[in-house]
Write a protein that binds this DNA or RNA. Structure first.
Lengths: 103, 103
DNA sequence: TCATTATATGATTAATCAATCATATAATGG
DNA sequence: CCATTATATGATTGATTAATCATATAATGA
């Protein structure tokens, strides 16, 4: 059981633009594929593939209801992670960190 | 300026086993390449490439001292992110939510 | 100056990835 | 049962990636 690999897999799953858009969209709660793919402006098949791999890597869970399949974030830590990434990004693009270090 | 892409890049940078080992090693503080690559058991050239891309994506900063180049974590949020990923991983492998069943 | 140590980079390769189109499966309502 | 809607999957393609070996650059000290 390679823990480094498993941890990396979780972060790698979040580190892809299409999947990050899915995570953002699912912040509000569970959604079916038919809602997700128009919201993120991706093809149904591509969206489905990403959703499946996100379930495999432990990011999402899936619930079936009739024809529809609903997906939702599986752990509150996921939102915390992407918010922290946003914090880092903002610091980088505002140049705050570089300026402080240069001073 | 595509913010989704920039956020994804930060997470993707952390989501690779070799780079995650580097982050873990740098928790204790700045280290030079000559300390890092033996510690993570990777080739010097491969380690150097990963370090350079980690600087480019805003994860590390670099300091030169003579022949040596020291690298260090640039944001405390990085440690928070990898710790949260660890939390998720532990929940997954202890089967509270099952990674294997989801696969 | 020369040998040594530290780091970076060019070239290559195999592997992985994301997206697309087409098609398959499966549930539902009429 | 049939048409429709929702979702998943096979096949393909171009792009990206990580690792490796070899070599280049650059600082240091003898």
């Amino acid at each position: 059981m390679d823990k480094t690999y498993l941890r990396a897999e979780i972060l790698k799953t979040l580190g892809q633009p299409t999947r990050l858009k899915i995570v953002d969209f699912l912040r509000e709660g569970e959604r079916c594929v038919c809602e997700i793919f128009p919201a993120i402006n991706e093809e149904q098949s591509n969206t489905s593939r990403h959703l499946n791999m996100m379930v495999s890597s432990g990011i999402l869970f899936r619930r079936k209801e009739g024809v529809k399949i609903f997906y939702a974030l599986k752990h509150p830590e996921i939102i915390a992670i992407v918010d922290l990434a946003t914090t880092i990004m903002i610091q980088e693009i505002t140049g705050r960190h570089s300026l402080l270090l240069a001073a």
